[in-house]
Amino acid sequence: MEVIFILIGISLLLAIGFLFLFIRAMRKGQYDDTYTPSVRILFDKAKDNKSNKDKPSTKTK
């Protein structure tokens, strides 16, 4: 049963890790704008404009 002590320690450390990651993301401004990135990800790369015409488009509309 002693292994539970280690597991508790690990679970707590993991949780602290997630908390740290959240605070870091917050600090870097990842939550400042929650809309624009969802549009931005759909843009094609500027340089690929011409070659993209041959490929099937991934856009739905």
């Binding site: 400042d32 704008d33 929650t34 809309y35 624009t36 549009v39 931005r40 500027a46």
Partner: peptide, 19 residues
């Protein structure tokens, strides 16, 4: 966000759509 293609002295543009 592609203003740098209009003028090379613009480094970048970043839009906050909601604001």
């Amino acid at each position: 966000e592609n203003l740098h293609q209009l003028n090379e002295n613009i480094v970048s543009g970043r839009v906050d759509f909601i604001k």
